[in-house]
Nucleic acid binder design. Sequence first.
DNA 1: GTGGTCTAGACCACC
DNA 2: GTGGTCTAGACCACA
Lengths: 126, 126, 126, 126
Amino acid sequence: MEWKFRSDLPIYAQIVEQFRQSIVSGKLSPGQRLESVRDLSMEAGVNPNTMQRALQELEREGLVYTQRTAGRFVSEDAAVIERGKRAMAMEKIREFLSAMNSLGYSREEILSLLSEEKEEENNADS
Amino acid sequence: MEWKFRSDLPIYAQIVEQFRQSIVSGKLSPGQRLESVRDLSMEAGVNPNTMQRALQELEREGLVYTQRTAGRFVSEDAAVIERGKRAMAMEKIREFLSAMNSLGYSREEILSLLSEEKEEENNADS
Amino acid sequence: MEWKFRSDLPIYAQIVEQFRQSIVSGKLSPGQRLESVRDLSMEAGVNPNTMQRALQELEREGLVYTQRTAGRFVSEDAAVIERGKRAMAMEKIREFLSAMNSLGYSREEILSLLSEEKEEENNADS
Amino acid sequence: MEWKFRSDLPIYAQIVEQFRQSIVSGKLSPGQRLESVRDLSMEAGVNPNTMQRALQELEREGLVYTQRTAGRFVSEDAAVIERGKRAMAMEKIREFLSAMNSLGYSREEILSLLSEEKEEENNADS
DNA sequence: GTGGTCTAGACCACC
DNA sequence: GTGGTCTAGACCACA
């Protein structure tokens, strides 16, 4: 994982984002054990409290769970993960549409531009 | 304008982005005079050199032009501005598709999700 | 290379000119590594920033390219170099015609004088 | 007249060049009175001795002459002026051919490029 | 006042 | 070590 933080969002929220992304994309597998809070916080160069807060948020969302003494693990509940994935996707979509909107593009134009990009990519493939 | 800078892109590049966005979206009108380098740099809280570099980049792109002692102005060439707008849109699209891709969505799924979002928005409108 | 600077053109632009000249004339070979920014700036007796700016301009023109940590290299793209060569030649020609013009020579006279010079040189050869 | 000096040639020589240019191109007319050494040196921002040396050189070339108490005047000898004009032209030509040569262009290519430039200019006229 | 250039020197990421 | 970025502050030409 790469740990770079923007200044426009609390660090703990950025950590949550990153974990969520890794989990729903499968980069972290269901059932996989996470490193300890202490190790993770050192890697990320943040205060252990910050890392702790992020992990608790993920737990609240059901994406990770804790086993008393063994540590934290990625959820094995496919439905929960799928739900998180959808949520992130819709978030990206809203961001995207909002950005295109502020550039002055209508829905129809956006779809048309998406098609163009697809064609370009196909050309690049050939 | 809001001047907050991320750490994952050079400041001068973020300034360029911001101006480009404002120009192609029409928030800055063709022919409009920009504030002086000194004033802008103070507002943004950056060194005058950094602001200068950003503005020169915009000039190279044709989005602004300089009049020796009078200041800098937004280009009045609609074709140049349209070109910049298209370039920014394609950039956003590529970012979006890449993000959706790393979440594990195929092109077809992306289009399908876009439709869902549209419906939701329509419902929200009504 | 000789590093003497006139006062009628920014130093960075004169450095660009000098490199461009060396590259298109083949004095710097395609693929050849340039010295580091620091070394070049010391040799030329200018600030590293000034040298950096010149090299970035050359990069924008495609005449050199950068490899992250290895340094800068002369482009190996013959078409780009040929284009630069033509551009410099046309520039010299325009300067020359303009100078002759302000001396009061017409196009026909210029061509005639060029022939004279050729003959003189031929005589000098024999 | 504009007085900017390069550092690659003695200032007095650059002054000579400038006067020679003005005289042979007719910008200074035959018989015209030059300003005093004192005034000229102040305008140019150089030491009076430097200006004096330049004017003596021009006198040696016959391009100006001195009348004891009335001052210095541009030569009225058309042959002398014509000779100076030719000398300057041949100098420009040699510089030009040398520059093109170091770019790697042969005599034939130079003539061909000159023709191209002529055409471009004609197009620009239309 | 405007933009433009330059120096001096710092810090960063990368390898 | 490499290139890249940024700051601080000076000086210039132009009008």
